[in-house]
Amino acid sequence: MSPQLIANIVVLAAIYALVSAGYVLVYRVSHVLNLAHGELMMIGAYILVATAGLFSGNPILALLLAAVSGLVMGLVVYAVLMRWLTGEAVLAAVLVTIALGILLRGLSILIWTTQQFYPAAIFGWRNPPVHILPGVQISVASLAIVALTIIVYAALFLFLQFTAWGVRMRAAGQNPLLAEQRGIRLHAVYALAWGLSTFTASLAGMLLSLDSGVESTMATIGLKAFPAALVGGLDSLFGALVGALIVAAAEIAAIQFVNPLLSDVVPFLVLLLVLAVRPWGLFGSREQLDRV
């Protein structure tokens, strides 16, 4: 395998990892699989288009505003939709996220049409390829995605491990009844999980749009990142990281050596393989399977 191929794998893995972190956060805390995640990521990218249009002279402000909107988006989704489904069958909640995905897809086309937007161009940024090693080049935005993925994962790890709210999120995921009896407000914890989930998804969407623009098909990336989360184990952040690497490597190898058309199906082939052999994922806990 050439060094360039490895670099491509790392970049794709970083994208999948950044997107799948949101799947894991929501699943781990509330056991809901959010199938609107890709669409929420896409909305995050479109919001950057909007803020970039408003503050084209001040990219930092535009980026910051879009990032904060990404956080608020999840809080709103929880408050308006998902909170009414707490305690209901998990599948009803999953179906609601499917419906939400379709709603967002329609809305985004109504607002932004099917045209492609380049927020980087609005800022007047170019996205030149960088030689990181002799003969190995990736775009600046891709480099930023890899760096951001590392930062986000480190931050999430520290947050979950060492802050009061992080521990509460873990506790609520394990035993919501006991958590409630220990005075933890489940709605607050769930809302926070949704907020962080759409926040990280928005970051991914924003950087992807800076790299190659945003159009109405971006949501597909969200769906392709889902196998990464499942391969690692839906309740394990570390698993998502490893799962992203596996799925990205398989996908790029298939494109390179077998057939470019395989790109969309390889993540799901990996997923089927894992479901057949070890359905709770490489690092997930086995009892997850009986929960749903």
């Binding site: 419906a99 379709i102 709603l103 109504l110 049409t113």
Partner: peptide
């Protein structure tokens, strides 16, 4: 963009 309107409305009805 009627199809988009259709998507959005369908999502709302399902929800």
């Amino acid at each position: 963009v009627v199809f988009a309107l259709d998507y959005a409305a369908f999502g709302v009805v399902m929800i």
